[in-house]
């Protein structure tokens, strides 16, 4: 039996308008590492963590999915996420990357490189609230 893959969020489609924390508007394909860093600095609740890709493997449930294992933050906590193979992550200093960049470009028109073990992705955690 075939199951229709879930739709990707609309904001990854090329041309989508993204609002940074200072109010500036940019297209998703024009975002730079600094945009995320500066937005997180302004944010009172969110902070950026470095998440290093430790492993990428196919999902057991569907060929449309991959399981990406990250080492998150200075404590290197292990976090695994199951995502569509075309789901883009933002790699520090590099830009959008996915497990299957051809599919990302085909479906979203978002310029994308191949996500690889050792890549350092931008992720978010909560700032310590007191």
């Amino acid at each position: 039996s075939t199951v229709a893959p879930p739709a990707l969020p609309p904001y990854f489609i090329k041309g989508s308008i993204i609002q940074l924390a200072d109010g500036e508007l940019k297209r998703v394909e024009d975002l730079k590492t600094e945009d995320f860093i500066q937005s997180a600095e302004i944010s009172s609740e969110l902070k950026i963590d470095s998440s290093t890709v430790e492993r990428i493997e196919g999902s057991h449930t569907s060929p449309n999915f991959a399981v990406v294992q990250f080492s998150v933050g200075e404590h290197r906590a292990q976090v695994s996420v199951e995502v569509l193979v075309e789901y883009p992550f933002f790699v520090f200093g590099q830009g959008w990357s996915s497990c299957c960049p051809d599919r990302t470009t085909q479906l979203l028109e978002l310029p994308c490189t191949k996500l690889s073990v050792g890549d350092v992705c931008i992720s978010l955690t909560l700032k310590n609230l007191k």
Binding site: S16, I17, F70, H75, C121, S123
Partner: peptide, 19 residues
């Protein structure tokens, strides 16, 4: 035209506190 907040594009990876 919809406008999306920057943080919706970033995965929220919250490590569980082990200490």
């Amino acid at each position: 035209v919809p406008v999306f907040p920057w943080h919706s594009l970033v995965p929220f990876l919250a490590p569980t506190q082990s200490d």
